[in-house]
């Protein structure tokens, strides 16, 4: 396996893309009509105060210099101060991000496990009643947006069956675990508090299902169709004819090449989950990045918006590198020739 050079090259490209993204988002933040300093302070702030903030934000310098200064700060791990909360953006993000990360993490597990297993079973029993049910439901799953699922799930579980809690991160009055990672489920396990873990976990389930259903259905559909395509190939037929056990044929020779396209799509969907998490978190009163994100968005907090986008950009690009490595592992043509097929 010559994965080393492949990963290195991918990493180089990613750094380039990240640079591009920073230029793009910085440009948008600066060319937007209106003065960010004025917007942050409100229409009634005195002129000299606004002017001071403008100087603080380097808004009086030429655009290229502004970008250079900003990049210098970012390179030192400083995303600037939030114009609304007056605290470093980094600190705000560190506080709110773990909750969202926890939610998206569980969502990703649902998407990957649910999507692939449903797709595989559906392809294995192609054109039976089970397959048809899965196909019908995956269609419904895809076309129903996450926030519609959130409303429907909340209705069912808040109104009809009281199995899962529908609000917040923990039951009201429960004291959260000592902060280590900021993720309640992991922190409570590290503290050995299994009751807290269960409580936090139960609160994650409904939002995670709402977020996972559309991408999971998409993954199931793609897995099924690529499995079905590969099932009819001669190599598979000959393998079966040679008497290779069914389990080996499906698990090894059929699954590996069939997973390439679903994995690529799932990465994009999991990253997009951060966007839809905004809505789902709001519906379930889940205090994650969404509450913060919506607040900074409505307040035109340019520094914070740029910060959030850059953090999500890094997450997405990392995710893509991981996917590329997995795909390279699955597909020797990419691994050995370094070529995208």
């Amino acid at each position: 396996m010559r994965l080393g050079p492949f990963v290195l090259r991918r990493l180089a490209i990613s750094i380039f893309v990240l640079f591009g993204l920073s230029i793009l988002i910085f440009l948008i933040a600066r060319i937007v009509p209106g003065d960010p300093a004025r917007m942050a302070l409100g229409p009634r702030a005195p002129v000299d105060v606004v002017e001071r903030l403008r100087q603080q934000m380097h808004l009086d310098r030429p655009l290229l210099e502004q970008y250079g200064l900003w990049l210098w700060e970012v390179a030192h791990g400083n995303l600037g101060d939030s114009l609304v909360t007056r605290r470093p953006v980094k600190q705000d993000i560190r506080e709110f991000f773990p909750a969202t990360l926890e939610l998206v993490g569980l969502t990703a597990i649902f998407i990957i496990v649910g999507g692939i297993s449903l797709g595989v079973i559906s392809a294995r029993y192609a054109n039976t009643w089970f397959d048809n049910v899965v196909r019908l439901f995956s269609y419904l799953g895809i076309v129903t947006p996450a926030f519609a699922w959130a409303v429907i799930l909340m209705l069912l579980f808040g109104f009809v069956w009281h199995i899962f809690p529908t609000y917040g991160r923990l039951t009201e009055g429960v004291i959260p675990p000592v902060t280590i990672t900021g993720m309640y489920t992991i922190d409570s396990l590290l503290n050995g508090r299994f009751d807290l873990f269960w409580d936090a976990f139960m609160h994650l389930i409904l939002p995670a299902i709402a977020l996972a259903l559309p991408p999971m259905s998409q993954a199931a559909r793609i897995t099924r169709s690529s499995m079905a395509d590969n099932q009819n190939k001669d190599c598979i037929a000959s393998m079966i004819a040679y008497g290779v056990p069914n389990r080996v044929v499906t698990g090894k020779y059929l699954l590996k090449p069939s997973l390439i396209s679903p994995i690529t799509v799932m990465a994009l969907d999991i990253a997009a989950t951060f966007g839809y998490a905004f809505m789902v978190e709001k519906i379930f009163g889940f205090p994650g990045l969404a509450r913060y994100g919506i607040q900074v968005m409505l307040n035109k907090d340019v520094n914070a918006i740029v910060g959030v986008v850059m953090v999500l950009g890094v997450v997405f690009i990392t995710l893509n590198i991981v996917v590329d490595i997995i795909v390279a592992y699955l597909d020797p043509r990419i691994r050995l020739l370094g070529r995208n097929v």
Binding site: G34, A271, A272, I305, V309, I317
Partner: peptide, 25 residues
């Protein structure tokens, strides 16, 4: 294509949200 790569380096929903956030609603 490299310019395009930058635009699709984050999901459209997040890019749209952040651009809309910086403009007037």
């Amino acid at each position: 294509m490299r310019v395009t790569d930058v635009f699709i380096s984050i999901p459209p929903i997040i890019l749209a949200l952040s651009i809309a956030a910086m403009l007037k609603p």
